[in-house]
């Protein structure tokens, strides 16, 4: 105690002696260097995005010099490798949206119900078990989900649909839905938890039950966050690659039947990138055309999610 007191007294004494704080040498240089280090770190993500867009655009452009944009966007046959060649991307878009739709059917209700349970019903003990379990679910590598779909879910489904082939949209869609449940539930739960307690009390004081309070007050009040979680989860489903490459098949096809084998945009890119298309060839450049379209689609979804949060956010 006494030492400290004396130490402090000495410091004060020194300051008194010099009459001012000693300025550390190089402080201004240091702060300028630090500023740049942090700035460059922050810029890294921006620069990466710019680089991706640039590389996608430049190679997609050489594709579109040979194939018309309209033909690409509106064509319903995708056979870029086999003759007769055809470059209509819709079958791939169809596959992507079909799987994303199936995933949404699973993930949105289950994820929302999970979030309601966690935010409104679960006692602390139960929450402490479920939340880490969800985090584990979110951390499983997607390749594992792919084989889970192929070797576990598909055989189970084949008992119900005996004619279903091994590679199909349904199995991939269901497992992808399970995969994105944690995204929906954790973002929705955050949104619900931030609904002020006073609103719940108002509902209870009017004679509302717990279910009425959750569904008619808390969920609507948290709607912007919930919708944003839906959009981001679907965006994730659209961009997901490994699972669909493994389990959904490699057959570009216009179909709404979940039992069909399909091919998604991402799975096509993987397939072609692993094949022997020569760099710079038209086949090779299809990757970038499809990739660009995928990029635009997920970008739109993310912007939509961002807009929903901004537009509908309630200021309490």
């Amino acid at each position: 105690m006494e030492t400290t007191a004396r130490g402090a007294a000495t410091v004060r004494g020194d300051r008194a002696a010099t009459g001012r704080f000693r300025r550390r040498r190089g402080a201004s240089l240091e702060s300028r260097v630090i500023w740049w280090v942090f700035f460059l770190c922050a810029m890294l993500s921006v620069l990466t995005t710019v680089a991706i867009v640039f590389s996608l655009l430049s190679q997609a452009l050489s594709f579109f010099r040979e194939v018309g944009v309209w033909e690409f966007i509106s064509g319903t046959r995708w056979t870029p490798i086999l003759k007769p060649r055809s470059y209509g991307v819709l079958p791939l878009v169809n596959g992507t949206l079909l799987v994303a739709f199936l995933a949404a059917i699973v993930a949105l209700p289950v994820g929302l119900a999970t979030a309601i349970f966690l935010a409104e019903y679960a006692p602390d003990k139960v929450r402490r078990i479920i939340k880490p379990a969800l985090e584990v679910l979110a951390g499983v590598p997607t390749v594992v989900y792919g084989y889970f779909a192929l070797t576990f879910v598909t055989p189970q489904l084949q008992r119900v649909f005996p004619d279903m082939i091994v590679f199909n949209a349904l199995s991939a869609g269901i497992v992808m839905g399970i995969m994105i449940i944690p995204m929906v539930s954790s973002l929705s739960e955050d949104a619900m938890i931030s609904v002020p307690r006073s609103l719940r009390q108002a509902a209870y004081a009017l004679g509302a039950t717990k279910l009425e309070t959750s569904v008619k007050v808390v969920v609507p009040a948290a709607l912007s966050g919930i919708v944003a979680s839906f959009i981001l989860a679907i965006s994730r489903a659209i961009g997901e690659t490994m699972l669909v490459t493994i389990a959904a098949g490699a057959t570009p096809r216009m179909t709404a039947n979940p039992l069909d084998s399909i091919q998604t945009m991402t799975a096509y890119i993987v397939q072609l990138a692993l094949g022997e298309a020569a760099h710079g060839s038209l086949e090779y450049n299809t990757i970038f055309a499809v990739g660009l379209l995928l990029f635009v689609m997920t970008l739109c979804m993310n912007l939509l999610g961002y807009w929903v949060v901004r537009r509908w956010r309630q200021a309490y």
Partner: peptide, 14 residues
């Protein structure tokens, strides 16, 4: 529902 309540801070639903 038979005994209503009004709170300290106005808490209308959004």
């Amino acid at each position: 529902s038979r005994i209503g309540m009004v709170f300290q801070r106005p808490n209308p639903f959004p």
